[in-house]
Simulated assay, not measured.
Amino acid sequence: MSDVQQQRAGAIGLDSRRPVRMVCLDVDGTMLGASGTVRDAVWHAVEMARRAGIQLTMCSGRPGFGVTRELAHRVNATGWHCFQNGASIVRLHDGQSQSAVLDDDIIRRLVARARETNRLLELYTDTHYVTESETRVARVHAEVLGLPYAPQRYEALPPPIVRAQWIVPHHELNALVAEPHDGLEVSPATGPALPEHVFVNLTRRGVDKGYALRVIAAE
């Protein structure tokens, strides 16, 4: 490492004398672009990191099933991964979970609000999700996730539920965020597949990607 590189590393808190032990990979806008495919150069870099003994883990707002699970399995089939903005922490090969579950009262309030406003809400466990919405956006999002589109009542999803998600047009975001979301972290994000909409992730208070990565690093 050159003197300039060492100075830059020090400026962001990196110590060039210590080897990198773990690298976290995002999905949308990082591994995947608007094309929905991963470039060969990315897989080449993944293989180089593995050969160097670096632990690789997915760190995504997406759920850990469908297309994202396939990516995570190829990145690290036996390791821990962070999905759903940190709410879902799963080890793929044996299904072990250290996920952060949402309280039942919170779920009931969100479902009531979705039905009152006719807003698109999705509820997630580590392995499944549900929405009652029959809109085009709900259908497209299922396709993006690589899952069948099958609207059901929210009560059909077996617990434990780890995350909820609103999907709204950009012009509705400020009003939505201003609504009470007691006990929740509210994290808006965008994705290349639905650029005209915002994904508003709802996880348990204090739960985000940083929380999940601390759990994974401890493992």
Rank of each mutant, 00 (worst) to 15 (best):
T135S: 08
T135H: 00
T135R: 05
T135C: 01
R136Y: 12
R136E: 00
R136A: 07
R136Q: 11
V137Y: 06
V137T: 11
V137H: 10
V137N: 02
A138H: 01
R139H: 07
R139Q: 11
R139N: 09
V140A: 09
V140N: 06
V140Y: 11
H141N: 04
H141D: 11
H141W: 07
A142Q: 10
A142W: 01
A142H: 05
E143T: 05
E143F: 09
E143W: 05
E143I: 02
L145V: 06
L145M: 09
L145R: 07
G146L: 04
G146D: 01
G146K: 10
L147I: 15
L147W: 13
P148E: 12
P148S: 03
P148N: 02
P148R: 04
P148V: 08
Y149H: 04
Y149Q: 06
Y149M: 01
Y149I: 03
A150W: 12
A150G: 09
P151H: 07
P151Q: 04
P151I: 03
P151Y: 12
Q152M: 09
Q152T: 11
R153F: 05
R153C: 10
R153P: 06
R153K: 14
Y154T: 10
Y154L: 03
E155W: 13
E155F: 13
E155P: 13
E155I: 09
A156K: 11
A156H: 14
A156D: 10
A156N: 14
A156R: 12
A156V: 08
L157G: 06
L157V: 15
L157H: 14
L157E: 10
P158Q: 10
P158K: 15
P159H: 13
P160I: 08
P160V: 10
P160N: 13
I161K: 03
I161S: 06
I161L: 14
I161C: 03
V162D: 01
V162A: 00
V162E: 04
R163S: 12
R163I: 09
A164P: 11
A164Y: 01
A164W: 07
Q165N: 15
Q165F: 07
Q165H: 15
Q165R: 14
Q165L: 13
Q165D: 10
W166E: 03
W166K: 02
I167Y: 11
I167R: 07
V168W: 12
V168Q: 10
V168A: 08
P169A: 15
P169K: 15
H170S: 04
H170D: 14
H170V: 08
H171M: 05
H171E: 12
H171A: 05
H171Y: 14
E172H: 14
E172F: 15
E172Q: 15
E172W: 15
L173T: 09
L173V: 12
L173A: 10
N174L: 11
N174W: 13
N174R: 14
N174V: 15
A175F: 04
A175M: 05
A175Q: 12
L176M: 01
L176H: 04
L176P: 04
V177Y: 08
V177D: 04
V177K: 03
A178F: 11
E179A: 05
E179Y: 11
P180D: 04
P180N: 07
P180A: 02
P180M: 05
H181I: 12
H181G: 04
H181P: 02
D182M: 03
D182T: 09
D182H: 07
G183C: 09
G183F: 00
